[in-house]
Simulated scan of single mutants.
Amino acid sequence: MAFMLGLGAYRTSNGPVLNAALPLSMSEMSWQLTDHRKRAVRSADWIGRSTMVFFGFTWCPDVCPTTLSDISGWLEELGPDADRLNIALISVDPDRDTPDVLAEYVANFDPRIAGLTGTPSQIAQAAEDFRVSYRKVPRDGDDYTMDHTAGVFLFYPDGRFASIIDFHEDRRFAVPKIRRALS
């Protein structure tokens, strides 16, 4: 499983991020963020339901919207079972991704997907707990983009890490992985 996590730790550009450490269990995580409805969310809030988490940002040109579209399709394929999941996009760009910006962005996808953001230190804590890598990459002028781990993390209802769906993985394996996390 560590190999798959390492394989799945791809950034949106410039090649792989070598970060093969498994995420902590939800009960060991200590992050607190704000969702797109401006409510506080803690890792402990997710224990008791299977969880699907993706790290990304709203200015992402390709990987993030593609992944969120994929997640929306998987949720549709899961049918009523999808209602048993916590589903979240955690932003790695707190400077631009406010709760209001995230609300507008996640409205383009399945309504069960929550957008989470926080201060830079709160995002850093969440990334550390999930063992996610990200960094700001300067572009022309004051513009920038974000490199980040691009896998979808799955957790069992008791908070244990279940699996990752890698961005480059054949998409037909995603729903079976999600169903296993739901069991």
Rank of each mutant, 00 (worst) to 15 (best):
A2Y: 03
M4I: 02
L5H: 08
A9H: 00
Y10L: 05
R11I: 00
R11D: 09
T12Y: 00
N14R: 07
N14T: 04
P16R: 10
V17W: 09
L18I: 13
A20H: 03
L22P: 05
P23F: 06
S25F: 11
S25E: 12
S27P: 02
M29D: 07
S30A: 13
W31K: 00
Q32K: 07
L33C: 10
D35E: 06
H36P: 04
R39N: 15
V41C: 13
V41N: 06
R42E: 15
R42V: 08
D45G: 08
D45C: 04
W46V: 02
I47Y: 09
G48K: 09
S50E: 03
S50A: 15
T51E: 10
V53N: 04
V53M: 12
F54Q: 05
T58S: 12
W59L: 12
C60R: 02
V63W: 01
V63L: 08
C64R: 00
P65C: 05
T66P: 03
L68I: 03
S69D: 10
I71G: 03
I71T: 07
I71V: 15
S72L: 00
E76K: 14
E77A: 14
E77T: 11
G79D: 11
G79N: 07
P80V: 03
A82R: 11
L89N: 05
I90K: 06
S91E: 07
V92K: 03
P94T: 06
P94W: 07
P94R: 01
D97I: 01
T98D: 11
D100N: 13
L102P: 10
Y105E: 08
N108Y: 09
F109T: 05
P111V: 05
T117D: 08
T117R: 10
G118V: 12
T119A: 13
S121V: 04
I123T: 08
I123A: 10
A124Y: 00
A124K: 13
A127D: 12
D129G: 04
D129Q: 06
D129I: 02
F130Q: 02
R131W: 01
S133D: 14
Y134M: 03
R135M: 12
R135L: 13
R135E: 15
V137L: 09
R139A: 05
D140L: 09
D142Y: 10
D142Q: 14
Y144I: 05
Y144W: 09
Y144V: 07
G151N: 14
F153R: 01
F153N: 02
F153K: 04
L154K: 00
Y156S: 07
G159K: 01
R160W: 01
A162K: 00
I164L: 13
I164A: 11
D166W: 01
F167D: 08
H168N: 13
E169W: 09
R172D: 15
A174T: 03
A174P: 03
A174H: 12
V175L: 14
K177Q: 14
K177M: 08
I178V: 15
R180S: 10
A181C: 13
S183D: 15
